[in-house]
Computed example of a mutant assay.
Amino acid sequence: MRPSKREMIVDQALRVIGEQGVGALTYEMIAEQAALTKAGIVYHFPTKDELLAAVVDKVTREWDEEASGYLTDSFEESSSAERVTAYLQTLLSGKRTSSELVLAAETMAGESRHPAWEHLRSRWVSDEATTVWEQVAILAAVGLWFSDATEYLTLSESTRAEVRAAVRHLPRMS
């Protein structure tokens, strides 16, 4: 099935964000890359803020769906530890992209903070129920994502797999 124009616009916007940052996101750039007119983009997203919100919503929805797939029971029936483990699996899956990292960095904090990120985090990682070792594991997983996206450390596939296994083990340290 062919993606809708709205989906194509959101996908192209995420690509532009990954390559040049949120500040470089323009209707003209997306129109060129998506082979659409600027008017066609404005029809779907009258403001840049609406477009950016749609990109964040898409990414956080995909993360949420992926984390749900790691649960053996329904979300409601899963314990806090099971939810954290599923979220951790999502961070460690290797599916997180450099474009998502740039988007997260530019829309998770400050004036640009998008509420979908907080909703995602609070849904999967309860501040009250999360242990210190679960928090360390999440921070380590985010660090690995950063390293993979920026090539901060050049890890072989076998080393990366060992690091992921070690990070998955961290929540059991308590």
Rank of each mutant, 00 (worst) to 15 (best):
S126Y: 07
D73S: 15
S126K: 06
L14S: 05
L36W: 08
T60D: 01
A149L: 07
R160H: 05
K95N: 11
I17E: 03
T47W: 00
P3N: 13
A31I: 01
E28S: 09
E62S: 07
R2N: 13
D73A: 15
E65T: 08
G18I: 02
A67T: 00
E62R: 10
Q20N: 12
R121L: 15
A140G: 08
T26W: 01
P115D: 13
G40K: 06
S4I: 01
D73G: 11
T90P: 03
G18W: 02
T107S: 11
Y70K: 09
G110T: 04
E82C: 03
S93T: 04
T60P: 01
A129R: 11
T107C: 07
H169P: 00
L153F: 15
E28Y: 08
R160S: 06
V59D: 01
S174C: 12
L120N: 05
R172L: 13
Q12A: 14
E157N: 09
L155E: 02
S74L: 09
I41E: 04
E128T: 10
R121T: 14
V56E: 00
A86L: 07
R123E: 13
F45L: 03
E65Y: 09
T159K: 11
V132W: 14
E82A: 14
V55N: 00
E111W: 13
E100A: 05
R6E: 12
Y152M: 12
T72H: 14
A53L: 02
A166G: 06
T150S: 11
I138M: 12
H114L: 10
K5R: 14
